[in-house]
Amino acid sequence: MGVVDDAEQPGFITTTLDKLLRWGRSRSMWPVNAGIACCSLEMMTTGAARYDFDRFGIMFRSSPRQADVMIVPGPITKKMAPIVQRVYNQMAEPRWVIAMGSCAISGGTFVDSYNVLPGAETILPVDIYIPGCPPRPEALLYGCLQLKKLISETSTIGSSRKPMYVPPVLPEEWPLELLGEYDALEAGAVWVQPERDSPPVTPLGDAESAPEDEL
């Protein structure tokens, strides 16, 4: 960015749109407030008074639609995996994922278990890994600053939009959830509008019982 040093037209800067977007995105990362397990306590601590996430422009959003970063704070179980995937696919583009703690990195203590996935990367494209069980708030802050660096160095203009992330190895237990026509294009599937559980609509006036002369 360069400031136009012109006395007749003050207050102008020259930059590219790409740089401006990167600057803005890297300074307002909004993680989705999805607490999964133990690490979410440290995530909350980082948001509270002593460590104060807000000074970096990081504010937790409760709705994935308003968020662009997903912090995965805990082990992903087989029952939770489709939901985590769905939350990720509902987030606005472009989006990033932080795997927080050993469980989200590799399964951690529970890697042997019959119900835990070996890390978040099996279903999500992870950008930053923060080790620890759980990581200290300082570690989470450092990880977020690393992500900030990553965002300010990655161009998001002109790259092909990825509406849906398709993991390299599709898990067999659950089908990939398609949320719309656009997702189906990405997953190479045919989008079928699901049947909604809606109450039967009864017409207000019954045609047969109406008097004939009024018809």
Binding site: I36, P75, K79, M80, F110, N115
Partner: peptide
């Protein structure tokens, strides 16, 4: 059951 890690089995 969304956080069932199988601690009793482990």
């Amino acid at each position: 059951g969304y956080l069932h890690r199988g601690i009793e089995k482990l």
